[in-house]
């Protein structure tokens, strides 16, 4: 690992300041992704700003919902009574990711900042527009089995690897950030971006902006939920496809639906058209089958990930039927 300057600020404003001035700087939280990337030479910071001492760990009720401090660990969130009661989809999604050891270290803010697991991004001998803009995309005509089927560009077909993000986008979370220019709130759906011409940008954060909390509004989506993750081994692997589903069912009618997919796009993939289709429909296998097809509109596969065109709708269908308590 290359050497770097190490700074440990005690206050949020000082952290932002340490970031914006001087050399190539990164915030360090749980480190489960960044330290790995530094060992591989994929990310080579000249300065690390250790934010672990900042007071950003609280999980608490707010007038409109629940606020999760950016430094709360994945484990702390997934087992928290408020989260389990109000947002069980989030607990399920977090527990589907990584291993217990990693979840004990990884933070909520860090999970949002997690880089793609595309092997061409990790291999510094390969071209990758995300790692070295303009160098090309090794995955486009390479081994692209794990890659995107939605929203990709000819510059990048990598996917966002997070499970937690799938739940947070479905639950309409808001990301609160602080930078030198002050505070602002970013809708979760606007936080991560599609690759377009600039795959080196994973998200819409400005330089030096620090995630301080993720807020989730109260909603009726805490009963009929399911997170289904399909992967190459039973546990501890990144998703080929995952589906997060939350339904608000009254008298066998779907009052509202929240759906998102993971492992299929450069950002957690919210399925708003499918949600609109489901609203007002009766709970039935036939409706869910139609929904799973609507979810696939605009999908495009590459040489080695064509299986996802079949796997993705099947995953949604099964997640919907399980969430609704139907026997498929």
């Amino acid at each position: 690992m290359n050497q770097f300057q190490y700074v440990r600020p005690a206050e949020v404003p000082a952290a932002a300041k340490a970031f914006t001035k001087g050399p190539n700087t990164h915030f360090l939280a749980g480190g489960t992704n960044l330290i790995d990337l530094m060992k591989m030479g994929v990310v080579v910071p000249e300065r690390l700003v250790d934010i672990n001492h900042l007071p950003l760990k609280k999980i608490e009720k707010t007038p409109g919902g629940i606020s999760i401090g950016a430094l709360a660990t994945n484990t702390e969130v997934s087992i928290h009574p408020l989260i389990k009661e109000s947002f069980p989809l989030l607990s399920l999604a977090i527990n589907a990711g990584a291993s217990p050891q990693l979840r004990n270290m990884a933070t909520v803010g860090g999970n949002l900042m997690q880089r793609t697991r595309c092997p061409y991004f990790f291999d510094t001998t390969m071209p990758c527009n995300k790692r070295v803009p303009g160098s090309g995309c090794g995955a486009l005509e390479g081994i692209n089995r794990m890659h995107a089927i939605f929203g990709a560009s000819d510059k990048c077909i990598a996917v966002n690897p997070s499970d937690m993000n799938v739940a947070l986008t479905a639950l309409d979370a808001t990301v609160h950030v602080t930078g030198l220019k002050g505070k602002r709130a970013i809708k979760f759906a606007d936080f991560h971006r599609l690759p377009g011409e600039h795959p080196e940008l994973d998200n819409t954060l400005q330089k030096g902006e620090l995630i301080t909390s993720v807020d989730i509004p109260v909603s009726p989506y805490n009963k009929n939920v399911h997170y289904l993750k399909v992967r190459d081994r039973t546990s501890y692997a990144f998703a080929l496809v995952s589906a997060g589903v939350a339904l608000n069912i009254e008298n066998n009618t779907i009052q509202g639906a929240r759906l998102a997919m993971g492992g299929v796009a450069h950002k957690p993939w919210r399925l708003t058209e499918t949600e609109a289709f489901l609203k007002g429909k009766p709970v039935s296998l036939d409706v869910f089958k139609q929904a799973s097809q609507i979810a696939m509109q605009g999908a495009r596969a590459y040489e080695y990930n064509k299986f996802k065109l079949k796997l993705a709708p099947n995953t949604i269908l099964q997640a919907l039927t399980t969430a609704a308590g139907l026997k498929a």
Partner: peptide, 18 residues
């Protein structure tokens, strides 16, 4: 400089041990 920037809790240079 670190003190001025309020980074004073802990700072280490590139080759320095903490």
């Amino acid at each position: 400089k670190a003190a001025e920037e309020q980074w004073d809790e802990k700072i280490a240079g590139v080759f320095e041990k903490v």
